[in-house]
Amino acid sequence: MKAFTQVSGIVAPLDRSNVDTDAIIPKQYLKSIKRSGFGVTLFDDWRYLDPGEPGQDHAKRRVNPEFVLNQPNYQSANILLARENFGCGSSREHAVWALDDFGFRAVIAPSFADIFFNNSFKSGLLPIALSAEVVDTLFKRCAEDAQYSLTIDLAAQTVSDTQGWTQQFDIDPFRKHCLLNGLDDIGLTLQHSDAIKAYEAQRAKTAPWLFA
């Protein structure tokens, strides 16, 4: 997994609540058997005016000029700002892969859906939950300044801008440790193989039908 230490960049404001994973990456692209190449169809139904299918040349599609990510200043944004319950719906990790492939390293919202939140850490995408009031303030600053940028420092657990505004955020210590070091979850778990085997041996005695 990609490590996350410090990220600075332009914030793209997506002023919607309950942004679901069908909106982040529509179903037709889930037919891919790869992990890459989803960035070009991130937010497909909002980003393009014509319907898209896997395998087509998306550069030739009609772009929706109204959509935030199509505005020139947000082409290089690497922090996404949204309203509550971001990433609700399906468990598709393709949603995280699409955000990552587009270039986002972090999403800031008042709250996240649980599965999306978990999935994010697996690709080194940092979901940061800040209060609805703080998120509202950030939307206002984005509206005032199209180049509004933030710096996220994971070690210090801070989000700050260039005018001296700083906000702390929470993260589980274990997730933070894995993300800072870009640790491979599976490798970590396999260090506990003996504990897993011991658990299985014990469980097979009390609930043998689970191992039939």
Binding site: E93, N118, K122, I186, T189, S193
Partner: peptide
């Protein structure tokens, strides 16, 4: 409960 693909791989590899 539902899980993402990285967790699918994690369960396959570790049962946990």
């Amino acid at each position: 409960f539902g899980i993402g693909t990285s967790e699918v791989e994690h369960v396959m590899a570790t049962q946990c």
